[in-house]
Design a protein around this nucleic acid. Structure first.
Lengths: 215, 215
DNA sequence: CGTACTTTTGAATCGCATCAAATCTGGTGG
DNA sequence: CCACCAGATTTGATGCGATTCAAAAGTACG
């Protein structure tokens, strides 16, 4: 897996510049994300909002004594947008792939939300997108087979039948809530059947989604 | 299962009155929900926002040729809040238990959102809650065992270890993405072990969640 | 009273988790 | 440059739990 080094000054992506007004953008700071680093932990009080520019972080919750469950992987976008008014985080944010993030002070963000109606509208639109994404994820996790979940992921999250594998298939397996062995096997089968292909860190669909004729 | 008949004039619940300002509330109309009725279907253009007051509706998506997947059950709250600016619905809304809903014209809702900053704030808070709920649901669906999912549901969605079974255990099984047989069996086992109890359409936890000693 | 549905239990089967082990990979330090 | 190590990747074997098919009993409703 080729490690891509980030440039010293990663410009905030268009999506962030469009969402945030210039005055807010000016208050943002950049932050490097080192592998294994924690952006925040469960029960901490939120002080900043993080926007992942590059790299990958995962949200995970550790329930009492169980294995940590991966709630979401973020490669581009806000982390825990819902913690806007929360008194504490409800999950951990761990960096799985080095990169960088934009950091917005929470109090400034809240203030702009109340004072800039247009900004509030954009924020609502962003949350709507997030709600839809989460519903998709629920739909995906409702599927029974590993192959179904994987294909659903590529069709749903991928761009034009092409999905970037972030930090290895292992973390992808956790996101799909299957064992990594099962994912490896399923992927091998799908590759043999010419349904999907792995190329330079990407999963590529080789058949039209409507022609689901595997097995 | 006792069928509860709704009163002729169901007042909008507090949560709705707090969220909507009086001027918007005045534009709302009430609507009876007959069993099996469709509030809307996939690909239709949204014209109204629905708030379930009583009864139960489910959001389900039918993927090409697969079984319909239940995305969410709503017993109290907005249906498809994320379709605020969407050009079309991305799922069906079917009434599973008769009741009533408040209907808000979408254009009026959008207008108030842009003109009433305070209202936009409340809307954002509502969306934040929804995002958290959906993350919980994803976490639940990531659990492997039927018992784990069921208990997680009662702990998460229930009030004080008490969860109302809406329209039968069968629809609950679909929400948990397990076969209804598996749910019946698991529930029977859990009742034998004095972990949960069924009383008048409710699931009641009999042990502290922290003392998870089933096995 | 009959029909349609949910609930319940039984039995057979299958897919995935789990345990195990080998290979491959990139990165480190000698 | 090479030996070496930690992690990811891959393949194999086994067992469990859930799905599936089947059927019976209970329940609501016209």
């Amino acid at each position: 897996m080729p490690t891509i080094h980030v440039q010293p000054h990663v410009p905030p992506p268009d999506s962030l510049r469009k969402l945030l007004a210039p005055p807010l953008l000016a208050l943002c700071t950049s932050r490097e994300l080192a592998k294994g680093e924690c952006l925040f932990r469960q029960r901490q009080r939120p002080r900043h909002m993080h926007f992942v520019v590059s790299g990958e972080i995962v949200l995970e919750r550790t329930g009492e004594a169980g294995d940590p469950v991966v709630l979401q992987r973020v490669r581009q976008g806000f982390v825990a947008e819902a913690s806007l008014h929360a008194a504490s985080y409800h999950c951990d944010a761990v960096v799985t792939t080095p990169g960088s993030a934009m950091v917005v002070p929470l109090d400034a963000l809240r203030q702009h939300l109340t004072q800039e109606p247009a900004f509030a509208q954009r924020w609502i639109a962003m949350l709507n997108t997030e709600v839809r994404r989460l519903r998709s994820q629920c739909e995906r996790l409702s599927l029974k087979g590993v192959a179904d979940r994987l294909l659903h992921l590529v069709e749903t999250e991928g761009a034009n039948g092409r999905l970037a594998i972030g930090s290895g298939l292992k973390s992808l397996a956790t996101e799909l809530a299957v064992s990594h062995e099962a994912l490896y096997r399923t992927l091998a089968t799908l590759e043999q059947q010419r349904v999907v292909e792995r190329r330079d860190g990407h999963l590529v669909l080789l058949v039209k989604p409507s022609l689901k004729q595997r097995s």
